[in-house]
């Protein structure tokens, strides 16, 4: 079992290194969330106070959502790089070694999550500069990172599975685009649950993104809301496990 861990770690190192070599992508992924943060908080400024309760600005309300969005964007397209590596033969070279396939796929997913966490931290810093304060302090920040890491793991693994299932860049691109936007809007990312129609409140119970948003927002705005936090951790943890299993299965059978 030790070797599986060390293999995974080698894949993570290699993947992170190759990502660092292309910093453009890391910043390109950040561009949208930061833009949303700057723009939306201006557009909806007048909603401050009325949206999430007394004394809470729209910026405070929206910043947690943007942190989740950053990780979502960063991981939902993870499969694209796997497809690129398949086309270029990089993946074949990795598979034709004693490293087992589970380590390759989990290593790639973990590397993706690590980069996503760094991006989330950058958004955190931008939000802090704009005046957002975390109600739960440093431990809260760590819990936020844990929540988004689970979400990122799930989506990165899902995207990899999808990539291996379809094996076509266009299809994966289209499917991902088709999924990410609704997942964001069908959550309480932009509006509090009280302001959403009933049907949306039902739908969002099946949306992992919403569990991340609720968990992160509580930690940033209100403090430890344990029942919500446990639920978020549990759901996101299960989501991550199921998706890693899906990704691994796809990689085991379809990475040819």
């Amino acid at each position: 079992m030790m070797w599986a861990l060390s293999d995974t770690w080698q894949v993570v190192l290699r993947d992170v290194r190759s990502r660092i070599r292309m910093p453009v992508f890391i910043f390109m992924n950040l561009f949208q969330p930061v833009l949303w943060l700057l723009l939306f908080t201006q557009i909806f400024k007048s909603l401050s106070g009325s949206v999430a309760g007394e004394g809470i600005s729209y910026l405070d309300f929206f910043a947690p959502g943007v942190i989740v969005m950053t990780v979502l964007f960063g991981s939902a397209f993870a499969g694209m790089s796997t497809l690129m590596d398949m086309d270029s033969g990089v993946l074949s070279k990795m598979v034709a070694t004693p490293v087992n396939r589970v380590s390759i796929i989990t290593g790639r997913v973990l590397a993706n999550v690590l980069v996503g966490l760094v991006q989330a931290l950058i958004v955190f810093v931008v939000a802090a500069i704009m005046g957002v304060r975390v109600a739960t302090g440093m431990p809260g920040v760590l819990l936020v990172l844990l929540l988004v890491a689970l979400l990122g793991t799930g989506f990165a693994a899902f995207s990899n599975g999808l990539a291996l299932l379809f094996k076509r860049t266009e299809t994966v691109m289209a499917t991902t685009n088709l999924l990410t936007m609704p997942l964001m809007f069908m959550s309480s990312m932009m509006m509090p649950s009280q302001a959403l129609p009933d049907w949306l409140n039902t739908v969002r119970q099946f949306n992992p993104v919403d569990y991340a948003v609720v968990g992160v927002r509580n930690l940033v705005l209100y403090g430890y809301v344990w029942t919500d936090l446990w639920k978020s951790l549990l759901v996101l943890g299960a989501f991550a496990v199921v998706m890693v299993v899906f990704g691994t299965l796809m990689f085991g059978t379809r990475a040819e």
Partner: peptide, 23 residues
């Protein structure tokens, strides 16, 4: 195996180090 399969922004040292480690 037929195709080249290297990242053009990595160096031989970096690429070979990964393979050395996994062996």
């Amino acid at each position: 195996i037929e195709v080249p399969g290297v990242y053009d922004y990595l160096t031989p040292h970096e690429m070979l180090t990964y393979f050395g480690r996994v062996y």
